[in-house]
Structure formats: C-alpha cells, structure tokens
C-alpha cells in the first residue's frame, strides 16, 4: 500500500503556477482552434517536459529546448544556424517560439499550416533530431513515467499516440505568450508604459516605414516576402520550395519583432548580428532580384530611406518590445 501511494504521488507534476490561456487585449483573435485541444495543467506540464526532453532525437541528445532557449524568446541566440544531431548544422536560423496561437503558418517558408504539426518537422529533419515520429511514440509508450502523465493529460486515451504527443507540445507552446513588454503597457495605458522622446519618435518612424509588413501588435502580417538580403536564392529559394511557384523564389516569412533585441542573429540566414546592421541593410543594403518586395523598390529606389538618428530611434523603440516577464517566466523553464 505504501508503495502504491508513493507511486501515485510521483505522477504529480512539478507545480508550475496557474496555467490558463488568455489573449491580451491589444492582440487580434488567436487562430489556433482551442476547441480541439483545451489547455490543462496536466497537458501543459507534460508538454513542457516533452519540450525539454531529448527523447525526440534519434540518439537522445537533442531536445526542442536546446535550440529554442527561453531567455532568447525560444530562439537560438548567437547561432547563425543551429547545430542539431551529430553536430550537423541546420539550413536556417532557428526562429523564436512565441505567440504561436496567432500564427497562420510556421517556419521561414510557411511549410507547416498548423502548430500541432510543427514538431514533426524538427523530429524528422536529418540535421535536427533525425528520428521517426512513430519511434518517438514507441519510446514514450515504453517509458517509465510518460504513459501515466499522458493518461492524466488525455484521460480518454489509453496509450500515447502521435496526436496526443503533438497536442501536449502544442499546449506548452501555446502558453508562450509575449505581450507584457513596455510597449504593450504603453498601448494598453498600463503602469510602467512610459516612452522616452526617442522611443516615441522611433514608434512613429516604425509606423511610417516598417509597419506595413511588421503589422499589428504581433509585428508581422504573416506574409512571405523577399526583403533583398540576397540577389539570388539558389541555395535556398524559401517559399518557392513549398509552393513550387517561381514568383515565390526568395520569399520568407515576415518574422515578428517581439523580443527582437534578444533574438540575434537576424534573417533566415542569420547574416546580421545587430539591429544596427539590420537597419543598415534596409537603408542601403537591399539587393535587387525579380521577386524583391515592391515596398523595397519604390520609384526605382532600392531600400527604405533612413538617417542615422532615425535608425537609432527605431532601435530604441524596438527595444521596448523586450518582454522580461516572458523571458524569465519560471513556468516556461526546464523543469
């Protein structure tokens, strides 16, 4: 009896604070269908454990959290591209994992249309985890603790399935909401939401010069665009790889700018290490090619006109998007 009782206690998740998804008032309506995957304490806790568990990789060396690190908004800070299994390098800069509930597509080329399907990509990628999802499900079913944790999170399922594995991971990722930066407090009129003169000037410049693509308080319009970082895309044609259409060559997803201060390097190639170099690119480094976004070639002029002080003001504004509460949220750390 004593043994049984202690076994039961062992199943209890590590306390993680209240787990409840709520959409911040300054963000649009989420796109994720929560009716198909209601977030629960047990599901979130399981998802978090899975996120940090290398069980997903072929040789149990790489977890999701290895390349998506909490203090850099779940991106791989300072890595141009990430090193996955066997030290192999990925092809593109690992994107941040934040505000996933609002996304209409995932990855730089938008190849995945639903959050639930996102982990399959990393699991199967030969340079990331190089494992088959079916094998991961098998490993989870044979694990000493996971079957009970899954039963708790998905009581109607007797065994671990691909669907429940993915939905648990989604529950963790859906909770990664960043909307408590100083900018958010500013637009919501909350305490602490004060801007300096430079930050205000930067916000105004941002609205004029950047917000067509980095639109809404998600700071992305979720389209695919060629922003002129290369003049040919023979190595990686981006959205074209997914759609096959020639007019998609060189187009990549417009990333959110939330926590952008903390997510260097920038662009799908990771070619820029600083925000200064990003703005220098937009003012004087844009390269022309047939699919270059028309907004970056207006009246025959390449790029966006920006003076040195305007760039500094925009950067001052971008730093107000840093959300320390999100980056340090104990609920999202490795258990």
């Amino acid at each position: 009896m004593i043994f049984l009782a202690s076994s039961c206690q062992k199943d209890d998740p590590v306390p993680v604070g209240e787990i409840k998804f709520s959409a911040p008032s300054n963000l649009p309506a989420p796109t994720y269908d929560f009716s198909k995957n209601e977030i629960t304490q047990a599901g979130f806790t399981l998802g978090r454990r899975l996120f940090y568990d290398p069980i997903f990789s072929r040789d149990s060396t790489i977890s999701c959290g290895d390349c998506h690190i909490s203090y850099s908004a779940f991106s791989h800070v300072d890595h141009v591209t990430s090193h996955g299994i066997d030290g192999l390098l990925g092809k593109r800069n690992a994107p941040a994992v934040q505000n996933m509930a609002w996304r209409t597509s995932f990855f730089w080329d938008g190849g995945v249309p639903n959050l639930d399907l996102v982990p399959l990509n990393a699991i199967q990628n030969p340079v990331e985890m190089d494992e088959s999802p079916a094998k991961v499900v098998q490993k989870l079913n044979r694990h000493a603790e996971y079957p009970a944790l899954f039963k708790k999170a998905f009581p109607e399922q007797d065994t671990v399935s691909g669907a429940t594995m993915l939905k648990a991971l989604s529950q963790f990722m859906l909770m990664l909401v960043s909307a408590d930066s100083r900018y958010d407090k500013f637009v919501r009129g909350e305490t602490g939401g004060t801007f300096s003169a430079d930050e205000t000037a930067g916000l105004n410049l941002f609205k004029q010069k950047c917000a067509t693509c980095h639109s809404t308080d998600l700071f992305t319009d979720q389209t695919f665009r060629n922003n002129g970082i290369l003049d040919d895309f023979l190595n990686d044609s981006g959205r074209n790889l997914v759609s096959t259409f020639p007019n998609d060559i060189g187009k990549f997803a417009v990333p959110s700018l939330r926590n952008v201060e903390k997510t260097p390097p920038y662009m799908h190639t990771g070619k820029f290490k600083t925000l200064e170099s990003v703005l220098d690119h937009y003012s004087s480094g844009v390269k022309d090619s047939p699919t270059l976004d028309p907004l970056l070639k207006q009246n025959g002029q390449l790029g966006i006109a920006l003076t040195g002080s305007e760039k500094q003001q925009i950067i001052a504004f971008l730093k107000t998007l840093t959300d320390e509460d999100f980056l340090r949220d104990a609920r999202f750390q490795k258990p």
Binding site: V112, L117, Q124, N125, G162, A163, V242
Partner: peptide
Amino acid sequence: PAAGAAGMYWAWNS
C-alpha cells in the same frame, strides 16, 4: 503521420 502514414508524409511541407 506518427503511425500508418510513416514514409508517406512530408513534415517540412505538411
């Protein structure tokens, strides 16, 4: 994709 469709599913281009 984690069972019967193994080998018949693209994860990168769902």
